[in-house]
Design a binder for these strands. Sequence first.
DNA 1: GCAACGGTTCGGCGCCGGCCGAAGCTTCGC
DNA 2: GCGAAGCTTCGGCCGGCGCCGAACCGTTGC
Lengths: 230, 230
Amino acid sequence: MATAGDLAALAGLLADETRAAVCLALLDGRAWTAGELARHAGVAPSTATEHLHRLVAGGLLVERRQGRHRYVQLADESAAQLIEDLAARLEPRPAPVTGLRAVTASAALRRGRTCYDHLAGRLGVAVTEAMAGAGMLDVDGGFALTPYGRTVLTSVTGAELRPGRRPLARGCLDWTERRQHLAGVAGARLCEAALTRRWVTRIGSGRAVRLTPGGESALRDLIGLDAAQL
Amino acid sequence: MATAGDLAALAGLLADETRAAVCLALLDGRAWTAGELARHAGVAPSTATEHLHRLVAGGLLVERRQGRHRYVQLADESAAQLIEDLAARLEPRPAPVTGLRAVTASAALRRGRTCYDHLAGRLGVAVTEAMAGAGMLDVDGGFALTPYGRTVLTSVTGAELRPGRRPLARGCLDWTERRQHLAGVAGARLCEAALTRRWVTRIGSGRAVRLTPGGESALRDLIGLDAAQL
DNA sequence: GCAACGGTTCGGCGCCGGCCGAAGCTTCGC
DNA sequence: GCGAAGCTTCGGCCGGCGCCGAACCGTTGC
């Protein structure tokens, strides 16, 4: 049984601005070095060390030491999901409609990005809706991959899709779009395939991604995605 | 865009043992008075007042003043879900198998309870699995109510089931069972019907519930629930 | 009216924890 | 080897916050 103390300790891991910044940065699913995170969060390396210790001890992060670097990343998908769930609660507006606030970096992020290990942003939402429209996802009754969708994704990835500890499909509320996009095993495999086949490519070193011309036609054929609406 | 400061502030609401105890108590979905919560958490009334202020200001709780009482309860289902999600991460063991730790109060809770506004515990999990077995829920591809399940539930509640801001069906990870049980609109309507039709009754004033003989036969006929395995 | 009761406000206390810089340790490049 | 770089440990500072009790306010019951 979960005690109040345990719950408070877990929440306490994220209840600090510096640690929160670290976790948000790590939402890209990749491993960062301690120094990168310290600079990102704007604190001294020694301070970052302490925070990373707490986050690792709390099970939210895992570390991998490699030479003189210490890489950390989110421990698992459920850790990422927890942070996403909290962050989702911070954006209660249904449709932003923010006019011409053309901060290009964040505009690129809104257009398309990875969220831990799957696609998000307008691209992720559009892919999800195209799949729903093509009968691959049931989004009315909840959020589930249909048998047809399973067949299609299996043909893409080659390997059989099986739910393990992680569900096959799960809706992940999008920060910027306030709509659900596909997460879970299916979302991860699709994102993996999209990156290896160069349907999407990363922009710079961040988590923003861009749909390539090849990806545009491939996704149109596969799931009926209309890239024009992006 | 969610900032680290916002995230930290939200997490900070739960990052205190007293506030966490309050939120866990409120997970039963009902309204508690400030004094009840103070006694439950073991702090002075003045201390409870401050905590409740913070939780209300943070949007996690709503208050309703009635005479000299101040009732608080969780603001919405997403607040309950957030707390559930955090609590679920605290029980990483797949199968407890705790032997004969017969703390009767918690045993009753494990057997059956309400979780915000739907059924949980062994009862909630058994209902969910019976519905999956009867073809009303798709739990392989994710978590969704099938058209057949929608028909059955509509016949039970009379009113049409429609997803709004809240999904029709959603899996909610059970604290004690570590399996998913049915939440979302469908879970809430089913629980509501089960309580009004006396398929289940509350035990005392807490969140524990018990399956009645009438409920046993009704749920056997409706979803093929085998009450013997409870 | 008056007392009892629930809740709130305020002041004060003490501790926890976040921050930094200095010193030290390990690894890497040369 | 030797210096530079990445990281960690330690000590010390300081602010925030959780706690309580006392005084106060509004409601309820007699």
